[in-house]
Design a protein around this nucleic acid. Structure first.
Lengths: 185, 185
DNA sequence: TTCCGCATGTAACCAGTTACATGATTAC
DNA sequence: GTAATCATGTAACTGGTTACATGCGGAA
């Protein structure tokens, strides 16, 4: 169980609606914990019933009303309790790694094209993380508390992306036949 | 869906029983796709019904009989088809990253202790991967085909572990109060 | 007029985990 | 005698995905 707790962490930083939470999971924290909006709404409902959060309907002009959620005291207790618990080991699921391993049983070039596509995807994501770091945390040395912790998690995302890209390059460098000279372009 | 396909890849390398598959998922391929033995048995049953694999009971002496699974032609077709499909993006779930991000809402030292514990765990795993590499692939330059692909996936595991360890060290180096001189030892 | 962003949800389904169950053999 | 390894499974549950549903406002 854990989306609960990721939401608690998110709400402790800032009260938000389900929609905002879902968007936030798409970005910063989503590197390490992702969730669709449907799942977020479902879990928020349960959390409200359990008394971890309270909802307030906030009317808006020109757009739909939203339900903004706040942590309750009980929610904070739950969060602190969870933080003290051992963390489960990291899990990385990579379709692509399985495909690389099985590449001999199908079309190797198709698999390599996928590796190249993922390489581009992650390079883009890495760029956006780096831009984000420059913009949001221009002076890491001076950070403390929550902001420092947020920066460290972003650093983790950056490190992982760099590792993946390095691995993609190793795979491509090893398995790609050197393009025949004079070919395309 | 994907455990199906990870099993197909595994069986294409070597016919195996459910038990053997489950053990294999604990090690090599488990870095990128893990599964419990229960889940493996369940999925193997479905795959047999779908005609992707066939089972043969192999009697053994001094230990229980086992059901060895082989790929069928249909299974090979399925595998080749899946390999040509786009791969879904990598997903990394890290409880610990969420805890680091939320550390200000609980006991920071407890979270750091967890980071240190995970650091040790992953350092151990990295060592075993490196030992495995040395032992199983002493001369990477000479590898081709399946063995080469296997080595590359192992390289991926090594890269990820190194990245994680680097990140743990960054977190610990940043958040750990310098131990007071003269304290414990 | 068509699509995108904002905003919230329900329902059906699927994949994976946890707990439980059995039973022989081998090593400490 | 106690635990680990080999070997296979069932049952109940949980967490997450996919598909479907609605409706306003603003931009192209």
């Amino acid at each position: 169980m854990a989306l609960e707790h990721a939401i608690l962490v998110s709400l402790a930083e800032q009260r938000s609606s389900g929609y905002e939470l879902a968007r936030r999971f798409d970005r910063s924290i989503g590197q390490f914990w992702s969730a669709t909006h449907q799942q977020v709404y479902k879990v928020l409902g349960r959390m409200e019933q359990d008394g971890w959060v309270t909802a307030t309907v906030v009317p808006q002009e020109g757009r739909p009303d939203k339900k903004v959620y706040d942590l309750t005291a009980a929610g904070r207790v739950e969060l602190a309790g969870w933080l003290a618990l051992p963390a489960q080991p990291e899990v990385t699921r990579s379709d692509l790694a399985v495909k690389v391993r099985g590449a001999a049983d199908g079309d190797l070039d198709a698999v390599l094209a996928e590796v190249a596509r993922h390489r581009a995807l992650h390079a883009e994501r890495l760029d956006s993380y780096l831009a984000n770091e420059k913009h949001e945390f221009p002076d890491p040395e001076s950070l403390t508390g929550r902001r420092l912790h947020q920066w460290l998690v972003l650093r983790g995302g950056i490190t992982l992306e760099q590792g993946l890209i390095g691995w993609y390059d190793e795979v491509l460098g090893t398995l790609r036949k050197p393009t025949p000279r004079k070919a395309t372009s």
